[in-house]
Design a protein around this nucleic acid. Structure first.
Length: 112
DNA sequence: CCCTTGACTATCT
DNA sequence: GAGATAGCCAAGG
């Protein structure tokens, strides 16, 4: 299909729904995985208009920072949800902490 | 058709 | 590493 499938290609939502807990993906990565390189902005649009709940909080910018304004309600909510999955923050950047990743990193973080 | 917007990115200072 | 800049692409006015 040529455009973003008239509406939004469900593959985008699939990709997001399949991000494992403790792991995160960037908008561009999701777009690529769904077969739409350069559609990062469309991913954000598709996400906010998803017909059903998605693990939206596992989606971050390519530089691994959150897409919301630091300190804003949605920012705090997202960071909170991520922390509940064991994800740590290196300043404003998230540090994916999948179970199986270096235990030292999960418990102590890259710095300390 | 032109212009603006946006939960984006890559690149250059 | 932070800020500016230029691409990017669909939507809506």
């Amino acid at each position: 299909m040529n455009n973003f499938q008239k509406k939004f290609d469900p593959r985008v939502w699939e990709v997001i729904a399949n991000i494992p807990p403790g792991q995160v993906m960037a908008y561009g990565e999701i777009a690529r995985a769904a077969g739409y390189p350069r559609y990062s902005r469309m991913v954000s649009a598709a996400m906010s208009r998803s017909p059903e709940p998605l693990p939206w909080f596992r989606v971050v910018r390519s530089d691994r920072t959150l897409a919301f304004e630091v300190g804003s309600p949605p920012y705090r909510e997202q960071s909170q949800l991520l922390k509940l999955e064991g994800i740590r923050f290196d300043g404003k950047k998230v540090i994916a902490a999948i179970p199986g990743d270096s235990l030292d990193k999960i418990l102590w973080g890259p710095r300390d």
